[in-house]
Design a protein around this nucleic acid. Structure first.
Lengths: 390, 390
DNA sequence: AACACTTCTGAAACCAGTTTCAATGCATAT
DNA sequence: ATATGCATTGAAACTGGTTTCAGAAGTGTT
């Protein structure tokens, strides 16, 4: 088969250019100094001898078309004949051509990149070691990759190093906020994003008045299911562990679910069985000790997160109370450690795969101006040993 | 105080430009259609009415200098007077100017971005839920942020979706590879990176012949320390759990440490006390059962990773063997679950903070052509309950 | 006073693509 | 045969910075 790349289409080699054409001439020179062959990268390692990357002009020359046609062909623009597209594709493959995303982004005013801002809890610094975020991360990465988007990631430590600049400096088309518990401290900055019309989504509880951007698990429903499960197994004095101040809107929702489940069953909500506790093992440990010493026997604990539930189990063991015989325990999150505790922890799994998918989906909807439909993710009860059998 | 921005320096308003100057004229127009005032973002939300971002030309006009001077001033280029720098900075602040990184990258041929490629173990898919990687991720992010680099992240699932294109398409200046256990399957592709002179570093065991790029914990030393600790507590029949085939070079190194510690103490290496096991709780569980049933009593287990050690503890409990009284257990990694097992797991902590720092540091050294010095990170023994007291 | 040497600045080239616009060729409608 | 329409294509404008180059202003030397 003859080389189709050498067959120049009629009308291409027009000889009627007489004037110097300074701009074009300079651009064209790039092509002249590039002599690539597949597999001849030997000099690449030699310092300062780096071979020049091929540009779309090189592809154009090789394929016998104009540079703009190369651009169209490689983007599968509609207005290119199948024959041309093939020739360009082959030339690009031959020279091992890769678009320069900076040039592309500059002109098209699009980056095809999302930025993920991960906020640490400045108090506990727990969010970073919370495996929950690794699976969120994984699913977000995959969801954006599947849609052809790159993902920039940034761990935010204080509210000072604010990274809305990711959008302002055209590094990313949209932002994803992720954080555990108290993220309201940066919401004031988030609201400013609306003013500069920067697309963003946030993981966490739905904030009233801005439903579209805020995506989270159905915490109320999940907690209700967990507490129902305890009640169905005959537990009556069920303690709730978790900070329900405005710092932890998610925990507050889970407390609502707890209250609702009790109400359904006609059980009283005993104020004294609530223990304020930040999300960490140590805090949960101490909180349950205080609660038992103060209020006497309980027969179950609902932890607003797994770390609290695990801390509670350790505290119970310290008071020689057996889990689940004496006290049943249910957590929330289903972190990796959950199946490894003894007994294994019954908990409400947050569907991180669906969550990541929804965050990205909704962010792209915002970017493209399409309407948002779903904003909540269902949780599922994972029954293990700590709640007293199936 | 008068507005310094209006004081044009002499010689700036030169009136001797008569010719049309097509290029400049078009560029200048951008400045004319932008009328910003701090806090007047009202129209920003209205569709299609988006206010045009300020460019460096706008800053130049406001500051009464040329656009190239603006560029220099904002980058703290040496060749700008303090007075000019101040004026430019003030103008930029006033218009809330942010550089367009795409334009910057395009011209400077630098992205100020690193790409992190996280590989899943296709067999166990464990690496994603392994909290070890979250802390690696966190430290890598922080290390690159500290140096002014953005971080692109990508979870690689199969060896097919190869992302050297991150560098080829000028998205990133360098690559960081992260993966658990068997990553040799993509090393053939990694070696190709050298050919195209793409800077990269890899987390894992040092691969002979390419010392500079490969960074990892001192696995031999760490394992030796752990096994020494067991020996010092009187243990003699110490099992080793872990796959030491070429698929897991790290485990292989840890096995070497195990053998060395035994040798130092004059203990024989009993072939039968080695159990091949991939990195997961289930596999460790089964492996220890088989080993006990086959070889009879042991008094200690060294797990090549924490998940294996945890699995082993569960298996031992199933055979009614007490940890640490009957069998002492030591793991490797120090994952978050480690302190929550019962008894809490003694293990070798990998210093992820130092590791992330070193990966980024070395990658930048490669990018800038500076020599690399360190390639190994020390581990530290974390003594908890599972090894039989301090 | 003439000269060299910095230090600072502006004009224009440059990076490598996308997008606009006008032109071409060809098929179909009149 | 001519007008109309459409699919393709190329030339040139355009994106918003950085970098080169040359010139101006100011200082020090002889």
């Amino acid at each position: 088969m003859g080389d189709p790349l050498r067959v120049l289409p009629a009308g291409t080699s027009r000889p009627d250019l007489k004037e110097p054409e300074p701009r074009r001439a300079l651009r064209g020179r790039a092509a002249d100094c590039y002599h690539p062959r597949p597999g001849e990268h030997q000099e690449a390692g030699i310092k300062g001898m780096r071979v020049k990357r091929p540009t779309s002009f090189d592809i154009a020359e090789l394929a016998g078309v104009s540079q703009s046609t190369v651009s169209r062909a490689l983007r599968n623009d509609a207005m290119v004949s199948e024959d041309t597209r093939q020739r360009v594709a082959q030339a690009a493959r031959l020279l091992n051509y890769k678009v320069d995303v900076n040039a592309r982004n500059l002109r098209s005013q699009k980056t095809n990149t999302l930025a993920l801002l991960l906020y640490e809890d400045p108090v506990t610094s727990q969010s970073l070691i919370n495996p929950f975020f690794l699976s969120m991360l994984s699913s977000i990465t995959k969801a954006s990759a599947r849609r052809g988007y790159d993902l920039l990631i940034s761990f935010q430590q204080s509210s000072d190093d604010w990274s809305a600049d990711y959008a302002a400096s055209k590094r990313a088309d949209g932002l994803i906020f992720l954080g555990y518990g108290d993220y309201l401290r940066y919401v004031d900055k988030i609201s400013r994003l609306d003013e500069v019309s920067t697309a963003f989504v946030t993981w966490g509880p739905v904030v009233p008045g801005q439903p579209g951007h805020f995506i989270g698990s159905d915490n109320v429903h999940g907690a209700r299911e967990g507490v129902r499960h305890l009640i169905a197994r005959g537990r009556r004095r069920i303690a709730f562990l978790g900070d329900i101040s405005e710092h932890c809107p998610e925990f507050r929702d889970r407390y609502r679910g707890y209250v609702e489940a009790l109400g359904e069953a006609g059980l009283p909500v005993i104020e004294a069985l609530y223990a304020d506790a930040a999300a960490s093992e140590e805090v949960g440990h101490q909180a349950i000790l205080d609660l038992i010493d103060r209020e006497g026997p309980i027969d179950a604990v609902f932890g607003a997160c797994d770390l609290l539930a695990i801390g509670a189990m350790n505290g119970l063991r310290e008071r020689s109370l057996r889990v689940p015989e004496d006290v049943a325990v249910v957590g929330f999150d289903d972190i990796v450690a959950a199946p490894f505790t003894s007994p294994p922890l019954t908990t409400l799994r947050q569907d991180t795969a669906a969550a990541g998918e929804l965050l990205v989906e909704n962010l792209l909807r915002l970017i493209e101006g399409r309407p948002i439909e779903t904003t909540q993710i269902a949780t599922s009860l994972v029954v293990r040993g700590s709640c007293g059998g199936l």
